[in-house]
Design a protein around this nucleic acid. Structure first.
Lengths: 152, 152
DNA sequence: TATTGTTATACTCTATAACTATA
DNA sequence: TATAGTTATAGAGTATAACAATA
């Protein structure tokens, strides 16, 4: 007995379903963590994406959205006192985004809560975790790692 | 040598990343398929969710959104000639959503293109597909199957 | 001329509340 | 009173185009 291509197609439908279920749980976790900190999802996403000093342009790249959106998102974070816009001494067009202490705290809280949700979702014996990781790795083109965080 | 809980946490971060990469590819496929048919994502999602005759209320349930949104989405599909609102003879409050021939064609095209994207993403030896499915199944609470399609 | 960030504007998606017509 | 669908409205999120300041 061997698998027909119909069988394989049926399995791949099932895999789509399962993978969306898992992502849905992770996304729920992120959205809840953001809501707990009273942050709109887009601001929360920007916050976890920021580290050290990034330019507006960099953030737009990271968030994979148009630069015009970043203005509003950063406005929100600035109004909440979570970051400041700092001028670049060498190029007066650019602004550097620097997290405040409170911004760093909220960022750490978001990451921690997100990590906890992930631990709950991927609560498997280590052998299975590793097997799952290796299988997923074969699906993802190399070098694309780290380009995309949890999108609410 | 045994795994510390730090190791396990590191693996679960990696799993989050991988699973979002995979979902991202699937979602891209869906969005592209919708765009090819000149449908906004929500309308495309509604279209693939419709089969036979569903009431507005049912569609809201399936899409997991408020009933008030469904009006607009269905308006769009009706204006494009992809479905009609049919009265219910027994209860004059309810309307049944019935796909037109063109609606069925577009729906089939969407499903086919979506399926092809899935086949490309999950292009593995069958043994690995089955292993992946079984691992993912252990992560997803039973009975939640089929509740959620590809969300753009 | 090209680039950084901003503003103005518009479209989509989603939610709440008030409304209608039925039941 | 309760339900099915609609309308009005509002708030995120995202996109394009035009703009000012700077390179």
């Amino acid at each position: 007995m061997h698998a027909t291509s119909d069988d394989r197609r049926a399995i791949s439908r099932e895999l789509v379903e399962l993978v969306f279920q898992v992502t849905g749980r992770l996304r729920e976790g992120f959205t809840r963590a953001a809501a707990d900190l009273e942050l709109p999802p887009a601001q929360a996403q920007a916050l976890v994406s920021l580290q050290g000093s990034a330019r507006m342009r960099d953030l737009a790249e990271i968030l994979a959205c148009d630069a015009s959106n970043v203005t509003g998102i950063v406005d929100g974070l600035e109004q909440r006192g979570l970051l400041t816009r700092q001028p670049d001494p060498a190029d007066r067009r650019v602004k550097h985004l620097v997290l405040t202490e409170e911004g760093e705290r909220r960022r750490a809280a978001l990451l921690a809560q997100n990590a906890q949700a992930a631990d709950e979702v991927f609560d498997l014996p280590e052998r299975d975790q590793l097997a799952l990781r290796d299988l997923l790795k074969t699906l993802v083109p190399d070098g694309r790692h780290g380009s995309c965080g949890p999108r609410p």
